[in-house]
Nucleic acid binder design. Sequence first.
DNA 1: TTTGGTGCAAAGGCTTTGCAGAAAG
DNA 2: CTTTCTGCAAAGCCTTTGCACCAAA
Lengths: 133, 133
Amino acid sequence: MRITRQRQAILDVLHETRNHPTVDWIFEQVRGRLPQVSLATVYRNLHQLTAAGMIQELSVGGGVCRFDADTSVHYHVRCLKCGRIDDLDLPTEEALMEAAHPRTPFRLLSHHVEFLGLCPKCDEAGHARTERK
Amino acid sequence: MRITRQRQAILDVLHETRNHPTVDWIFEQVRGRLPQVSLATVYRNLHQLTAAGMIQELSVGGGVCRFDADTSVHYHVRCLKCGRIDDLDLPTEEALMEAAHPRTPFRLLSHHVEFLGLCPKCDEAGHARTERK
DNA sequence: TTTGGTGCAAAGGCTTTGCAGAAAG
DNA sequence: CTTTCTGCAAAGCCTTTGCACCAAA
């Protein structure tokens, strides 16, 4: 795979955040560095980098695709209000896989845990609104 | 909320499966019973039933929306090849929430565990193809 | 009758693709 | 040079919405 300016910029953007951005956000960031970049290029590269194992596509709820420069197995928190997703540095629960194996005819390869809640900003906004009314 | 034939049919379909179907699949099933039903109606009702807490929308990866008549907290397995999703009757890990709380500034409300793997059919197909080549 | 629900078709997002020109190796 | 990548624009999903008609309660 060739190292083009576009590809490098995408990788840079991903490595500089921990929020697991959507394609749209990545596009905006890359555009700040390479103003003529196209959305199609961002999509194509994200998929190619994913296929090459250099980044991972997050298997999370909430609709749109999200990407992560950290390809290790780790868990996430998603804000139900603003959709932001952060890493959660929790030891990966091998016990979960062990417990799940006997319960399904599927051949299990991996797992992912997603916590749902409110990020500090959204949580505060909610309180504020409730208290003042 | 009124109990229309369409709404009842959608609920019936959901209660008769454990595969956590996509909107498209639900639509086909409902259409088998009410041939003139429209896709828009299926979408509208699925969201309304979700808002009413009578079904839940699954927070899983894989792109399209999926729905589940079981509104309790429980975990799932998804086949990486065919996308099928099944219930996994695993005791809900309260310990996970306990462990996660101190690690994030988010206010955690719930969590979901998704196991990824191959369903028996896809797994077998994969073996067969590999062995024969 | 009254209100909410339905079907249809059109519109909206997000994502993918075809193609000719550009650029990395 | 060759091959891959890019930008653009068009097309493709999946999902939502506006509107006039229909049907529960």
